Amino acid sequence: MLEAGPVDAKVLSVFDFDGTLTHHDSFVPFLKFAFGTGEFYGRMVKLAVPGLRFLLRQISRDELKAQLIRTFMTGVEKAWVQQKAEEYCQRNWARLMRPSGVLSVEQELGSGAEVTLCSASPALVLQPFANRLGIKLIGTELEVVDGVLTGRLTGNNCRCENKVLRLEAVYGDLGDYRLRAWGDTRGDRELLAAAQDAHFRHFHAKKRKRARLKR
């Protein structure tokens, strides 16, 4: 845990996206939406062996993610991805977003906090969601050359310790802030550990309560 920081420290509120503000992962469904069902499954077949190697712990999650990016994003125009991301956001906002999560973002903004998403999903895909929420965005960056994606990442996958490093690169010493954080997976552990006010699976609570009642 960081020290509380100065008494009058500005609040920095950081939200993971997939599974935290959303009901489930957003990137793979985006790929299916953008490329179409046939093309999507045709390309996913190429990931069968890497997927098996991941399950056997022969490659890491980051290595599998890199292969997913190469399979779908090599040679694709950035402008096309941006257009598809806008369409995806517009068509799927209501079914994808957790209402309690969206409300929490609004409350943090209303309190005067600095608010940002910090996600392992590509920033290019999440930008329309950040814009609609009215907050900043830190995400995994895809390499672009002459307006075309190369299929490689710029920097590291934005998860685990890299979330903290990316926040520090943007905001400076996190000890100067009162850090609040929301996350839901192992990839958020370092972020949550760095926060004075940490929320793990905070927006999942109602679902868990309903499950207990059914028992």
Rank of each mutant, 00 (worst) to 15 (best):
V49R: 04
S13Q: 09
E114C: 02
V28D: 06
Q90Y: 05
H204A: 09
L117S: 03
G112Q: 10
K46Q: 03
F35M: 05
F35P: 06
S119A: 08
L137D: 00
T71K: 12
V170C: 11
K209F: 15
R70W: 14
N131A: 12
T71P: 13
R43W: 12
P99N: 06
L56G: 04
Y171A: 08
C89Q: 09
G42K: 04
L174I: 03
T116L: 08
G139M: 03
K206N: 15
Q90K: 02
R70Y: 14
E143Q: 12
G75L: 00
L103W: 06
E114L: 02
D176C: 04
R208M: 15
H24T: 12
A198L: 11
N156L: 11
K32A: 00
E39R: 15
M73K: 01
A205K: 12
R189M: 01
L103I: 00
L68K: 02
S119C: 02
W182D: 14
S111L: 04
L12G: 04
D188A: 11
V125R: 06
V164L: 03
L117E: 01
A85L: 10
D146A: 01
G110W: 02
W80V: 09
L56C: 09
Q196H: 10
L213H: 05
L126Q: 01
R57T: 00
I69S: 01
R210Y: 11
Q58A: 02
V11W: 13
A211H: 14
P50A: 08
D18V: 04
L165D: 15
A123T: 09
E86P: 06
L133C: 07
G172E: 00
R53T: 09
Q83P: 00
G38F: 12
E39F: 14
H23C: 08
G155H: 10
W80F: 10
R215M: 08
L137E: 02
A113T: 02
Y41P: 05
D25W: 05
R180T: 13
F40T: 02
L167Q: 07
S13R: 09
R208G: 13
E86G: 07
C118F: 05
